[in-house]
């Protein structure tokens, strides 16, 4: 389509001959070189400072796969997962409440977000961890009767549960705003078309609005998850045996404080890198329908490169007419 075709007549005075390709002297960019060298010097100085410090890398190596550290990394991961599940689930509920025509629902949602977003997570975890001091017993019962179930708060609120409550309830406030932004971003015409087909409010939300809102919701949710991975370190205040607590526990005995902080950081960095890859694939999944062709996955890119290497005709030889030597740009959807 972009090729010239012989069909339209050439207007008088114009020409169809392709002029010689432009070969200009490239513009020099000396300041790019200067700034690059300066930045590398600063970086070198920083690396040198740490390399010549009394940091013992062998200690880092010794503890990086320590059984206690590995177990703590697992605790960090599942604390992140559970807190995010609580946060996303409750966040969707709060967002829908906030957009509800029911004023009371909208107001309660606003109040929740105002409170949990306005106080520090550390304080919230601390609160749940110490709730037994004001509520020694928790009970659920049928009002105005004596039928009820009672339990000691101390046994009910474990360190892990205190952390989950603190992190999850706080996250829900942020997720509610993210989900709300996603819902609002979906064109009003979508809701209208769905209503015109006789779909009810809940069905429209579930089948039409939320799937489209996901495209807006997913990227910030990925950020929230990565942020949560690191925020779980605050659970150490409730004595949850996650990475930060455990590395501190170890360094309390051997005094290798910085070495163990590095051990923990390496694990945080590794886990957040893995989450970044997940995020890429999930975003790609929810891009369906919003872009004409999905961006290829790294594996597809590799496969295409290898395949084309064989399928492409050698330079200089004419391709068989009518045969498409390249893969079409629209790749089959991956299994995600």
């Amino acid at each position: 389509m972009t090729e010239f075709s012989a069909d339209p007549p050439v207007p008088p005075g114009s020409t169809r001959v392709r002029p010689e390709a432009i070969r200009a002297v490239p513009l020099r960019h000396p300041w790019r070189w200067v700034s690059a060298v300066l930045v590398l010097i600063v970086l070198g100085a920083v690396v040198d400072t740490f390399a010549t410090s009394s940091l013992h890398w062998s200690v880092v190596g010794q503890y990086i796969f320590d059984a206690r550290i590995l177990q703590a990394a697992v605790v960090t991961l599942y604390l992140t997962a559970i807190a995010m599940v609580v946060g996303v689930g409750l966040g969707i509920l709060l967002a829908v409440m906030r957009l509800s025509p029911n004023r009371v629902m909208a107001w309660v949602s606003w109040l929740y977000i105002w409170f949990f977003r306005g106080t520090p997570v550390l304080v919230q975890i601390f609160f749940w961890w110490n709730i037994n001091t004001i509520l020694p017993y928790l009970s659920i019962g049928i009002p105005f009767t004596h039928v009820m179930v009672q339990a000691s708060t101390n046994t009910l609120i474990t360190p892990l549960l205190a952390a989950i409550l603190g992190l999850g309830l706080n996250e829900a406030a942020y997720m509610a705003e993210i989900v709300r932004a996603g819902i609002i971003s979906v064109d009003q015409g979508q809701t209208e078309a769905a209503h015109a087909l006789g779909m009810r409010r809940s069905l429209v939300m579930r089948r039409i609005v939320l799937p489209q809102a996901m495209r807006v919701i997913v990227p910030p949710t990925g950020n929230e998850t990565i942020s949560m991975l690191k925020t779980t370190s605050l659970a150490s205040i409730a004595t949850v045996h996650e990475l930060f607590f455990v590395q501190q526990d170890i360094s309390n005995f051997n005094y290798r404080i910085i070495e163990l902080v590095i051990v923990a950081s390496v694990w945080y960095l590794a886990m957040s890198s893995v989450l970044t890859v997940f995020q890429y694939y999930i975003e790609r999944h929810f891009a369906r329908g919003s872009v004409r062709g999905l961006p290829p996955t790294p594996i597809q890119r590799l496969r295409r490169m290898l395949f084309q290497f064989h399928a492409a005709p050698p330079f200089g030889s004419a391709a068989e007419p009518g045969v498409e030597p390249w893969l079409p740009p629209t790749m089959p959807h991956s299994g995600m």
Partner: peptide, 16 residues
Amino acid sequence: RSEIGMVFQGFNLFPH
């Protein structure tokens, strides 16, 4: 509403 069909100026197909 389910017994009345409606076609919009902006199509409003579900893009997903």
